[in-house]
Amino acid sequence: MKKLLLATLLLLGIVTTASAQLPKVMLKSIDGKSVSTDTLSNNGKPFIIDFFATWCKPCNRELTAISEVYEEWQEETGVKVIAVSIDQAQNINKVKPLVDNHGWQYEVLLDPNSDFKRALGIQTIPYVIVCDGNGKIVSKHNGYTEGAEEELIEEVRKLVNK
């Protein structure tokens, strides 16, 4: 009985995660424009949301590793990366110089109060969400190890080749 209950709960968790929409939170872009997170999209193609902070070394390594192959990913799948900084208000001024120094070509949003992070139930960063072309969350990952970006593009490829 316990095994059946556990299996049911796990299946419900997978189904819930797989079909979850992005919550509505108002953020600012790195250029100061207001953005509602429930409208994030990529013209019907998959997109990746990567939560980071300027002080988070694994976050910066992950975004740099993706940056090195990002152009190839875009050509192959049309994927877009949206980087969301959770730096607090007093450190927001460090985000743009970091992005510029690394040459990251991502859409960058600012979540200084961690409202979006909290709405998604995220505890630690780096944290990556893969969304399908309809904005539904299809997978989530936290932490970064070298080479993990290959797992991300594989998930995107599966969405594109459905």
Rank of each mutant, 00 (worst) to 15 (best):
D87W: 09
I86N: 07
A18S: 10
L40P: 03
E155M: 02
I92D: 05
G78L: 09
A65W: 04
S34Y: 12
V95I: 08
S41M: 04
I49N: 07
K140P: 01
Q105F: 01
I137F: 06
D87L: 08
V15F: 05
E151V: 09
Y144H: 01
I86Y: 12
D50E: 11
L152N: 04
H141G: 04
N43W: 09
L40M: 11
W55S: 13
K28N: 14
M26K: 14
N43H: 14
V25P: 08
G147M: 05
G135Q: 09
I48M: 15
V156C: 00
L63S: 07
S34D: 14
A7I: 10
G13T: 02
V69N: 14
L12E: 00
N113C: 01
K3F: 13
K158W: 00
E150D: 06
K24N: 12
D50Q: 11
E107L: 14
D132F: 12
V160M: 06
D100Y: 01
N60T: 14
K94V: 05
C131T: 14
I122T: 12
V95W: 02
P112G: 06
N42Y: 05
G121K: 11
D100T: 13
K136S: 08
E146V: 03
R61W: 06
K162G: 09
K96S: 13
L9K: 01
I82H: 10
L4C: 03
E71W: 03
D38I: 06
E155S: 07
K136P: 00
T39A: 08
L11V: 09
N142D: 10
K136V: 14
C56K: 07
P112F: 12
M1I: 13
F51T: 08
L109A: 04
S34G: 00
E154F: 02
G121C: 12
I129M: 12
F51Q: 04
I49F: 05
P58A: 09
V156P: 03
S114L: 07
V69D: 11
F52C: 05
S34K: 12
G32Y: 06
G143A: 03
S29W: 09
Y144F: 11
Q88I: 11
N113R: 11
I48V: 15
E76T: 15
L110S: 06
F51Y: 11
V130Q: 06
V130I: 15
E76W: 00
P126A: 10
A119N: 04
W73Y: 14
N113Q: 15
